[in-house]
Nucleic acid binder design. Sequence first.
DNA 1: CTTTACAGCGCAAACGTTTACCGCAATACG
DNA 2: CGTATTGCGGTAAACGTTTGCGCTGTAAAG
Lengths: 363, 363
Amino acid sequence: MGRRGPTLHEIARDAGVSIATVSRVARGVGQVSPETRRKVQEAIDRHGFRPHHAGRALVKRRHAALGIVFPGLSGPYYSDVIAGFEEEALKARVSVLIMGTHFLRQSVDMVFDMADRVDGLAVMGGVIPEGAIRRLVDRGVPVVLLASAPLVGVPTVRTENLAAMARLTTHLLADHGYENLVFVGNPDGSPDATYRWQGFLQAHHRLGVEPPKEPIRVGLQQSHGFIAVSRLLDENQRPRAIVCANDETALGAVVAVMDRGLRVPEDVAVTGFDDISMAGLAASGLTTVHQPMQELGAETARRLLRHVEGQLDVSLDRVLETQVVIRGSCGCGATDAHGARGVDADTSTKRPSRSSQVTRRKK
Amino acid sequence: MGRRGPTLHEIARDAGVSIATVSRVARGVGQVSPETRRKVQEAIDRHGFRPHHAGRALVKRRHAALGIVFPGLSGPYYSDVIAGFEEEALKARVSVLIMGTHFLRQSVDMVFDMADRVDGLAVMGGVIPEGAIRRLVDRGVPVVLLASAPLVGVPTVRTENLAAMARLTTHLLADHGYENLVFVGNPDGSPDATYRWQGFLQAHHRLGVEPPKEPIRVGLQQSHGFIAVSRLLDENQRPRAIVCANDETALGAVVAVMDRGLRVPEDVAVTGFDDISMAGLAASGLTTVHQPMQELGAETARRLLRHVEGQLDVSLDRVLETQVVIRGSCGCGATDAHGARGVDADTSTKRPSRSSQVTRRKK
DNA sequence: CTTTACAGCGCAAACGTTTACCGCAATACG
DNA sequence: CGTATTGCGGTAAACGTTTGCGCTGTAAAG
């Protein structure tokens, strides 16, 4: 166990120079004669020398790594955010440490462990308590919050949730004239869900419609949507439309509805949020809100990188735009079956619909 | 920029002891009187001391980190494998470095960079050339191959692809009596695709049926399946069944078929591979092969951990079982619409079907 | 009262880098 | 021919830990 490969000293001995010279040659800096450089380079190649990361990190006081913390790791949402984050980090030649808290209590400790081996940390909203974030920041750890409610003194990157959900809900209420909507999702579960629930409420209030007292509080996975809606229908409380906190629960909801022999959207309309790449597939295509998940990750990485350099205003709160995407599951143009987003996004038709600021997307 | 937080020295000075004692107290080891321990612990708490990772890594010659390398990062497949890997690593209190090569040439260098800062590396099959793997191993880097063709001297963890695909293809050929099958996927793209193509061929040969000369060589994303099948149908070459290399392309294929006004499975049957959680949703539920992706990641992590400890037989080639899952898209029981796997897997009915070793799954 | 044992803790040597500083030799300049 | 200048490259001091070793002093054993 332990170290593999040669050190500066061995190369130095072999090449008959000092370790300083080897270090200079290896990094291609400093004043070294072509002659010496060649000789040293040969020794480096011969031994396959590569500098040990820890030694470098110690003296440079940089880990050359960024960390990102999520509640869990599986699911299309996380993977897209991670992909954007990682790609941007790689460009800056910085490694990415990843962690899912899995909702364990011990996970806060693990986040602190992680903080000790990276230069900066991206933390998704809601995964660890605010107090822990504060302590991290107080320790001097550069932190960027991701999809989180803003916290004073901590830069944030997120997407617009509230207004988008309000527009989507308004579309159901005003354009379709649906009454009796339900909301599936737990507002206390994550900041995203909180804002979406608020947008749902806001739309009702603006239109003078009484919203449901309570959302159906379940998690964000497909199975949660399925179970919640199955139960709802079994109780013979059939809503006209089901507004889900994200696409995965919405897809679960669609299955549950169809499972009871009902049709989407004729009997029950369903909407989602996120616009994951599968959203175009379900039944007649899921009406949802598009948010740029990959860009969310990428922007977070860029900000974090700047934060590490001390070049970021910590009061930053970047809000990325989102867009309502109308497909079939809300009841619009049922003939536009299964719009295939992600398949050919460039040619997707965007045109104003009945409700302004709403994009209708087909094929 | 650089270091934040106090060092052993500052705590030692403050507590009036030596750094050795502080180190011992911080780690809870060695002989320290209760009195001293208390005093030092107070100083540690007061300053919020946490040991600097690089210092420790240097002397312990351990990074306490594992790396995992994929071609890309987004998509349900990777996220599940990663989730399994990460969870297992976390249990061992080891960090996870993640990287997507994005099919760039420079990525091989980056893999070597990564190798310098982890204790072991999991590499997905096909992402970097075999020669690079060899060099990694020669340098003494513990490597475990993931979903790769076996390579002598390098432990491998993978899932059974060939036989499963042969069973699935046999089901289409023999049980359904379909002729004129096409295969969508690039056998040269990844080891998984290679084995699946071979299984497809094997089934044909065993039944004495002439297989297609060539597969339709496209990538593994949904859009690739959509485009490939759209083109195929536009050329008026309608196959009776489309066997896809994975679920995502299969889902793309389903959309393409429906887009032409054709029905799945009545006009064209479609099958996938992987059994991602969305597979239960598409149209009448995707017939596919279930493979334990999360377990694949977890098992890889466990093996890698043992490899790092020098306790792993490098000739290991672990093959995880897979299972054909029959849903509606192959033409079986069209009334079983949209089996919702993942929703309630425990209650899923498993019963022998016409073709042995095949599981029929509904709801 | 002397020896032995051992708990408690400090000293100092690693671990493998980077880099400020300095000395030396060769060149340029007056 | 003496003096600045400059290019090379070596010396050594960090960076922050862990840990083998050895020195104390007190307690137990003889």
